[in-house]
């Protein structure tokens, strides 16, 4: 399909990791939190009432999908959003989702002209 060729930069296996990572609501919420700025495991865990190990596990999945990066130098290792990988996955899904919907819009328009042609045929027939 058209959206497949339109994909750009991310390594293919990473895209599946991105889909998988984004399918989880907690991980989406973590990403949403990180969109407001980088945060430590502690800071992320607080509003979710989750244990730090549980948050760390989610962060690891997000990191492996290339959606976030962790600072290496600091002890606290704050997590930061890396939105490029997400942009590719969202574009992919948006295109897949839009394919039939947009085609159906075009079919709507075509059916309208076909109906008019039919009416004309009836008039003359």
């Amino acid at each position: 399909m058209v959206m497949i060729s339109a994909m750009a930069s991310s390594p293919p296996s990473q895209l599946d990791a991105v889909f998988s990572a984004l399918a989880d609501p907690t991980r989406r919420a973590i990403l949403s939190r990180l969109a407001d700025g980088q945060a430590t495991v502690n800071e992320i865990a607080r509003p979710f009432e989750m244990s730090q190990p549980a948050v760390s596990k989610h962060l690891k999945v997000l990191e492996q999908a290339g959606l976030i990066e962790r600072a290496v130098e600091a002890q606290r290792r704050p997590a930061r959003l890396k939105a490029e990988a997400m942009a590719d996955a969202v574009e992919w899904l948006t295109r897949f989702k839009a394919f039939w919907g947009d085609s159906f819009d075009q079919l709507d328009a075509l059916l309208l002209t076909m109906n008019q042609t039919n009416d004309k045929d009836t008039d003359h027939g």
Partner: peptide
């Protein structure tokens, strides 16, 4: 991603993007 919760999830992602 498309069906379950991405209704709002997509909005969040679009804001992020």
């Amino acid at each position: 991603g498309m069906d379950k919760g991405w209704g709002s999830g997509f909005t969040v992602l679009e804001e992020l993007l």
